[in-house]
């Protein structure tokens, strides 16, 4: 019983800490997008910004990592409260969702980073 409470507490904390990281990332992201959309979006424009740029690589890696922690824990809570699905199943689904985001995200970022125009 206690172990469940302990793991739930760490999940909650991870949720909150990733939220704080995301607060910064999201503000930067929205600002970037407002600027980028104004300049005109295209494959070339996106890869021009990111390819070979360690700063953007670092930023987006952090961003994706934080999302892959934050979103699944949130989804887990919603599923536990809004559905009758068993706890273990929900935990598994949430973890898979997290891995999914991580893989998709890193694929995109590292791909863009490595692209030459």
């Amino acid at each position: 019983m206690e172990n469940v409470a302990r793991s739930e507490t760490w999940l909650w904390l991870a949720q909150r800490v990733s939220a704080m990281v995301l607060a910064v990332c999201v503000i930067v992201h929205i600002a970037t997008m407002i600027y980028a959309v104004q300049q005109g979006l295209s494959t070339a424009a996106i890869s021009a910004r990111i390819s070979g740029n360690l700063m953007w690589l670092g930023f987006y890696t952090t961003f994706v990592a934080a999302v892959s922690i934050h979103a699944p824990i949130g989804v887990r809570t919603v599923l536990l409260e809004a559905t009758e699905l068993p706890q273990k199943r929900v935990g598994l689904l949430a973890m898979l969702f997290g891995l999914f985001i991580l893989v998709l995200g890193f694929r995109a970022i590292f791909g863009l980073y490595g692209m030459s125009l």
Binding site: T43, V64, A71, F100, I101, L104, A108
Partner: peptide, 26 residues
Amino acid sequence: GVLLAVFIPVHLYVLSLAVTDGAMLD
């Protein structure tokens, strides 16, 4: 939150098209 959770995988997939199929992304 739920909306964003649904949107983000789609967003990341579309973005990865920049690498695999730039023409499709454009």
